[in-house]
């Protein structure tokens, strides 16, 4: 139940930051009587109430919760962290490298990690997917995707 206390604390912190940011909104004496602050202030208060409710729930709950083996969950943390970083890089270079180049590189690495050892299938799907989706979206559906490096 440790995690629920952390959630409660995070919610309190967020409520504080949000209420502070709300206080920074300049008010003008026009428009409706409430102005842009009233509703957000209400939200901040409800979040604080929810955090208190959460704390009270953790007090009631029985403490016999078994913690997961830390070694495995740390490995998962690395995995998800790695995928997040790799995806962030993909999204970051989406414009400059262009959809085709970025997607091929991104998918090759992803499939190499998560579908290991099946090189032929991975390369084939990646290339067919990238080209196929580009043609489908850009040429047929008229959705704009960046051409990037291949724009000549």
């Amino acid at each position: 139940m440790m995690i629920d206390r952390i959630i409660g604390a995070a919610a309190l912190l967020l409520a504080a930051v949000y209420l502070y940011a709300t206080a920074q909104i300049p008010t003008l004496e026009i428009g409706d009587p409430l102005g842009p602050k009233a509703f957000p202030i209400l939200l901040g208060i409800v979040l604080i109430a929810a955090a208190i409710l959460l704390f009270s729930e953790t007090l009631k709950a029985d403490p016999v919760t078994v913690e997961k083996p830390p070694a495995e969950s740390r490995r998962h943390l690395w995995l998800i962290g790695g995928v997040t970083a790799w995806t962030a890089l993909y999204f970051g270079l989406f414009d400059r490298a262009g959809y085709l180049v970025a997607t091929v590189v991104y998918l090759l690495a992803m499939t190499a990690v998560f579908n290991p050892g099946k090189w032929v299938a991975n390369v084939l799907t990646t290339v067919l997917w990238a080209v196929g989706s580009y043609v489908l979206f850009v040429k047929i559906l008229g959705v704009s995707l960046p051409a990037g490096l291949l724009s000549f």
Partner: peptide, 30 residues
């Protein structure tokens, strides 16, 4: 599954990018 999940991430990129053509929104989606 490994291929499928990777492809869903690539589709997500198309979906978000196609709204405003904005990579900041991609990072926000992430």
């Amino acid at each position: 599954t490994g291929i499928l999940l990777s492809l869903i991430l690539a589709i997500s990129a198309i979906g978000v990018y196609s709204i405003n053509g904005n990579t900041l929104e991609l990072q926000m989606a992430l």
